[in-house]
Computed example of a mutant assay.
Amino acid sequence: MLAAAADSVTLDRFRANDLAVDRKPDRTPVTDADLAVEDAIRALLAEHRPEDLVAGEERGGDLDALAGKRVWVIDPIDGTKGFLRGLPVWATLIALVDDGTVTSGMVSAPALGRRWWAHTGSGAYTDDGHGPRPIAVSGVRSLSDAFLSTTNLATWGEYHSRAAYEALVDACWENRAFGDFWHHCLVAEGAIDLAAEPIVNPWDIAPFAILLSEAGGQLTDLSGVARLDGGNALSSNGRLHAEALTILEAGRAH
């Protein structure tokens, strides 16, 4: 229901000639579609889950102040820069956090014709238009065989260490910058093995905490702590996680 409402708004505004674009204080873009999607989801939750709280990227909500509560965490359009340029790689991210633990997550990328979702104890799934199917992370056990992705290489120099990321690149078999939501979904379904981000917000990664866990993988910050508010993130098939973290930390030290 929530994802369908979001898709209706985003697809209607995608590639619209009159798309309105503004800038937030952090200089990232926000479109009229971002605001409309979050408002639509909030309206549905107010109607059907009035006792729950909401924290969204555009309309606010402090997760730190909501401990012990049921909170819906929303990123109305993850990949806004691509959305406003007419690229199809963007998605609405929805997660339910219950007393600090993500229990459900949904990622809907309608321009790609894809959804991914997971619930605690129920496994992880995707649907590419041919019906739901279960997904699982890869079985790759060596970084020399691993496929790595990030979002924007330039942000490594600003928020962590470009040298550290390049050291991880050198240790891996292949790398790309699929970016944003998509590379975490690709890790969950076993298409790639690692996705590393030097800067994220809780709404950027909330659904992936449960999606990766239920798919057999792992999501932590770059210090190895499983949290949404660490400011950065590494998702993996689990088998490569510790070694990747070690390289990222060693590279930063230099």
Rank of each mutant, 00 (worst) to 15 (best):
W117V: 08
P207W: 07
D62T: 06
A226P: 07
S108D: 03
T101W: 14
A206Q: 02
T101R: 15
A163S: 13
I135L: 02
D180C: 12
S8H: 11
G56M: 07
L186N: 00
E47I: 07
T126C: 15
N201Y: 15
R13Y: 13
D99N: 15
N175C: 12
R70Q: 09
A118T: 01
D193E: 10
D127I: 03
G100A: 07
P134E: 03
I210P: 03
A65C: 03
K24N: 11
G61Q: 02
D26P: 05
A196S: 12
E158W: 09
V187R: 00
T10A: 14
E51Y: 10
D99Q: 15
V102I: 14
L194M: 05
A253G: 06
T246D: 15
E47C: 08
I192H: 04
R162Y: 08
A118F: 07
H184K: 10
V73F: 01
H48I: 05
G100K: 07
L93T: 03
V137D: 04
A3R: 13
V89W: 14
D18F: 04
L66M: 15
A4H: 12
K24Q: 15
A177S: 13
H183Y: 10
T80D: 01
R114P: 10
A109G: 08
G238K: 00
A65W: 03
W116D: 06
N232S: 13
T80L: 01
V9D: 00
E174V: 11
F181A: 15
V37S: 01
A253R: 15
G86P: 03
L87S: 14
T155W: 12
D22M: 14
A164D: 03
D7G: 11
T28Q: 06
G86I: 02
E197K: 11
L112K: 04
L219E: 08
A226N: 07
R15G: 03
L45A: 00
V107L: 00
R176T: 12
T126L: 12
H130M: 12
I41A: 05
V54Q: 09
D229V: 03
H48V: 06
G61I: 00
F178G: 07
L53Q: 10
W173Q: 14
L143A: 05
L11M: 12
L168Q: 08
A250K: 10
E214H: 06
G139T: 05
